[in-house]
Design a protein around this nucleic acid. Structure first.
Lengths: 203, 203
DNA sequence: TCGCTTCGAGACGCTTACGTTTCAAAGAGA
DNA sequence: TCTCTTTGAAACGTAAGCGTCTCGAAGCGA
């Protein structure tokens, strides 16, 4: 047993075998979630897919819920904001990233399972809404700044506008089973972003 | 609470016991789907909830998938378009109905299960996208007419605009776990619908 | 009333997954 | 090298759900 008290604040030195086990197991969980969803996920299937013994899983997690929570926590969906360019260009860049993420990524394939799990368990719901809000905040921030600088009219509601820019992507992915590509970003911005005279879309 | 369940189909000359069994079973399936989702749904639980023998279920459906498909098919989510009023008023009315539906209804509570099931099975996916498209078509129709009559500018894309009006409602319901009320309808319309001079929102 | 159908209940053998336990092998680290 | 930890595999008893079957009760309609 590693003495955890030895180095307060620092991450305790870990046996590399533990880290390796964690990694392959959590990867297997995400794969499994994408394939069978949350309700049908079993520990045995995860163990088989990860190529580890069941006991290794039960050594590190008390049960399915905690395992899935941990797996979701490893999901990353970073959105980078270009620090220069017009308002329009920056928004397009962000929406393009979101579209690509929703179109194809580990996150994308887990999205239905995540939505389903969030509906059943408060802890997953909490994680999921925070996770989504992170990405939303980036876009809201850009739009809010634009209102302050006058690039957008004062009547613009940054949050509603952000949701209107991203919502259609989710709608098409989750409800209409339509493919979404990055090209939707420009279409959305052209259609929804209020323009101020000289800022009209170039083509 | 919007009643979203179908009226009994009134199929001709059947033993009323059969019809009654179908009804209570399919209702139980929808309840069960709302509670545990698709992956964790079991025939035994459905039978118990419906107060019916397992054998009665297996008499009428070959398995879980067909049972769930049939249950989904009983979902109704009608959207009524007021035949008069301004473009703005008609769109607000439709969005309000969508918001209420998404906020609370049998459909709403089954939505995560539906999304999850659609991801796993092509038949459910097909049903779900058609089902969603029906509602979308209503809104697209209104907007398309408005473009033709000149109430909306020719640059307006009816499909994208419809998705932008409805998308935020889904986004908040499914990703952000935020409550959505009918008042979002007017906010969305005011924010997104291009206005032509005298059609400015009244307040 | 009476024959026919559908019903609920529950037993059935079977399969899958649960969560625990044991144990020998292999890796880590000193 | 040598000790300690972690591992994968497998067996364990238990529980739940599968899909099938039988049977007596009850509802149906003529």
């Amino acid at each position: 047993m590693v003495d955890v008290r030895a180095a307060p604040g620092a991450v305790a030195e870990q046996d590399p075998r533990v880290e390796r086990s964690r990694r392959v197991i959590l990867e297997a969980v995400l794969d499994e979630l994408g394939e069978v969803g949350y309700g049908a996920l079993t520990i045995e299937a995860v163990a088989a897919r990860a190529g580890v013994g069941k006991s290794t899983i039960y050594r590190h997690w008390p049960g399915k819920l905690e395992l899935v929570e941990d797996a979701f926590r490893t999901l990353k969906a970073p959105v980078v904001v270009p620090d220069q360019g017009s308002l329009r260009d920056r928004v397009v860049a962000v929406i393009e990233q979101v579209a690509c993420l929703v179109a194809e990524s580990t996150y994308s394939s887990c999205m239905p399972a995540l939505i389903d799990a969030a509906e059943r368990d408060p802890k997953v719901r909490d994680f999921h809404s925070r996770f989504s809000a992170e990405r939303r905040a980036v876009l809201v921030g850009i739009l809010r700044d634009a209102v302050q600088t006058g690039e957008l009219p004062a009547t613009a509601d940054p949050e509603l506008l952000a949701d209107a820019l991203v919502g259609p992507i989710l709608l098409r992915r989750l409800m209409l089973a339509q493919p979404v590509g990055p090209q939707i970003a420009r279409a959305l911005v052209d259609q929804l972003l209020p323009v101020r005279g000289d800022e009209r879309p170039s083509g």
